[in-house]
Amino acid sequence: MLTVEAITSAYGRINVLHEVWLEVKAGEIVALVGSNGAGKTTLLRTLSGVQPARSGRIVFEGEAIERLEPHQRVVRGISQSPEGRQVFGPLSVEDNLRLGAYRRQDAGMRARLDHVFALFPVLAEKRRIAAMSLSGGQQQMLAIGRALMAAPKLLLLDEPSLGLAPLLVDQILAAVRALRAEGITVLLVEQNASAALAIADRGYVLETGRVVMEGTGAALLDDPKVRTAYLGL
């Protein structure tokens, strides 16, 4: 579904991604793990088009998209829940969700809204409340819900568990699995490597802007190098 070929990206003159290669097949949950500053967020931003790629190709469903504007990528079915939630603070929960469907104002929007409310019932309770007054966990649900409103084929999730209580982390990851069951492909970036690899079909380990390891989620979880470097075991 998604093939990333030798993507390089930079902030100013500093290269953050050095020829990253990776693949996501339809229906998979793929985890991208690595320490702080490894380039995970930059890679997702490059995929969404909010961070320019310096070189390389991004092929989505057979089409090269690395030169497309972010909104054109949303239309093609790539949607992102960014790191740090990034909700529209002063706007209501429902407005945040409706804006998620900005590029898909179709008859299905009502159904998707109900679906997000079914997935995260607390959002339905707080639909009229300004997003900035939600708790961190609720904002995270809102960010994921907003990304789902675009009816994505590929959902990019950046650090959905960051700063959340363990119970909420489980709830969010359960939601991710439920989404895959509905046919949404997920690329998941996580510092919480054990949780991410546990639900992932496959995973990539990113280190200073390069993919240094790849394998099935289970294989990476058992890998001694991964265990010492990222799982603290």
Binding site: V50, S79, P82, Q86, V87, F88, G100
Partner: peptide, 23 residues
């Protein structure tokens, strides 16, 4: 209006606005 909301959304968070597909 949706365009009006998009303007408010852009004001509130430009990165998120781009990510939901607002030009």
């Amino acid at each position: 209006t949706l365009s009006g909301k998009a303007l408010l959304a852009t004001a509130a968070n430009r990165l998120a606005a781009r990510l939901v597909g607002i030009n």
